[in-house]
């Protein structure tokens, strides 16, 4: 069963990556679909990161005791003002491991 999950997931992931690189595929995505899809990266990435930051131990924690939240805010500010991925990840992860 586990192997079935792994292999079928691999197929789904690979198809999603390869499909639109295939030259024989006539592109027939409507403008509306493409616009809708253009929101998928921010929406999905946010939906994955938000619970990690705001609900670290299964409970909503909006205080300064929540290291995840504090460092998440630091990362957001770094990303916003520097736009530098390396600086943002390294500094915020470094800060996290100092505080955690």
């Amino acid at each position: 069963m586990t192997w079935l999950i792994i292999l079928s997931m691999a197929a789904v992931v690979f198809i999603s990556r390869y499909l639109l690189l295939e030259p024989k595929l006539p592109l027939k995505l409507s403008d509306k679909t493409l616009t809708f899809l253009s929101y998928s990266a921010p929406a999905v990435l946010t939906a994955i990161l938000a619970p990690i930051v705001f609900v670290p131990e299964g409970q909503l924690n909006l205080t300064f005791d929540n290291t995840y939240l504090v460092c998440g805010v630091v990362a957001t500010l770094l990303a916003y003002f520097t736009g530098n991925t390396l600086l943002t990840t390294v500094l915020s992860i470094g800060l996290f491991f100092i505080l955690f």
Binding site: Y39, A41, P42, A43, V44, L45, T46, A47, I48, L49, A50, I52, V53, T67, Y68, C71, G72, A75, T76, L78, A79, Y80, G83, T85, T88, T89, S92, I93, F96, F97, F100
Partner: peptide, 30 residues
């Protein structure tokens, strides 16, 4: 606390993409 690395990477990838009000709305609702 290794999972913070995920959050940090994704924050670094998402924040620069928020260039329009509609993307901000999308991120906030999500």
């Amino acid at each position: 606390g290794l999972d913070f690395a995920i959050a940090a990477t994704f924050i670094a990838l998402v924040v620069p993409t928020v260039k329009k009000p509609s993307i901000l709305i999308c991120v906030l609702v999500s």
